[in-house]
Simulated scan of single mutants.
Amino acid sequence: MNKHTPRVVTAALAVGSLAALTACSGAGASSSDTFVGMSSPVLAQEGQKYMSEGFAAATQELGWDSQVYDANLSADTQFSNIQTMVDRQASAVAAWALDDGAIAGAYANASASDIPVIGINSAGSNVTTSVWWEVNTCNSGGVVEQLADTFAEAKPGGKIAVVGGPPVPSIVALTQCFVDAATAAGLTIVSQQDNTQDTSAGASALAQDMLSANPEIEGFWTYNDASALGVSSVLTGSGRSIYSPSNRDGLVVTGVNGDASAISAVRSGTLSATVDTDPVCSGWAVAGAMRDAQDGTPPEEYVVASSIVDGATIADYVEPAERTCSLDDLPLVG
Rank of each mutant, 00 (worst) to 15 (best):
A185L: 07
T84S: 15
S170Q: 13
S125A: 14
A148Q: 08
T34I: 14
V172Q: 13
I120G: 10
G164P: 10
N121V: 07
S39N: 09
I82V: 15
Q67P: 00
V309N: 09
D310W: 11
A12V: 01
Y50S: 03
G250N: 09
G255N: 08
D209L: 09
N109C: 01
N195A: 05
Y107K: 11
S74I: 04
N72E: 13
V8M: 05
T5I: 12
A27C: 12
R323N: 06
P116T: 04
R248F: 03
N2T: 13
T274S: 13
W221R: 01
N139I: 06
P6E: 11
G158E: 08
A287K: 02
D180N: 14
D149H: 11
V253H: 11
I217F: 12
I160T: 08
Q197F: 00
G230E: 07
G237F: 04
I120Q: 10
A104P: 05
M85A: 14
N195D: 15
S125P: 08
D316K: 06
L62Y: 01
A110W: 10
G237N: 01
N139A: 14
Q146Y: 09
A71N: 05
A312T: 15
E322I: 00
Q294I: 14
Y302H: 04
S307H: 01
S306I: 12
S17N: 15
A152H: 08
S326K: 04
A112M: 08
F178R: 00
E46N: 02
E46G: 03
D194G: 03
S17R: 12
D249A: 13
E134P: 04
D149N: 15
Q60G: 14
P167D: 12
G119Q: 09
A97F: 13
A71Q: 03
L43K: 02
G219F: 11
V117Y: 06
L229H: 03
V36Q: 04
C281V: 05
K49M: 13
Q294R: 12
S191W: 02
T34Y: 07
T150L: 15
P41H: 07
T137E: 14
D292M: 12
A321W: 00
G239Y: 07
D87P: 04
L271M: 05
G119L: 08
V179L: 07
K155T: 11
A203W: 11
S272W: 09
L21T: 08
S31W: 01
G258N: 03
P166L: 04
G142R: 05
F55G: 08
S233A: 15
E61Q: 14
Y317P: 09
S272C: 05
A203V: 10
A23T: 13
Y317D: 09
Y302F: 15
P299S: 07
Y107G: 00
Q197K: 01
S227N: 10
E300C: 00
A104I: 01
T34M: 07
V131N: 03
A27L: 11
D70P: 05
A201V: 12
G63I: 03
A285G: 09
Q78H: 02
D310G: 10
G54P: 10
E322H: 13
A27H: 06
H4C: 08
G202D: 06
D87Q: 15
Y302R: 10
V127N: 02
A181H: 02
S91H: 08
T196Y: 00
S130I: 12
E300I: 01
S204R: 02
A102P: 01
V143S: 04
L147M: 14
A94P: 05
A289V: 09
S282H: 09
A75N: 07
I308F: 13
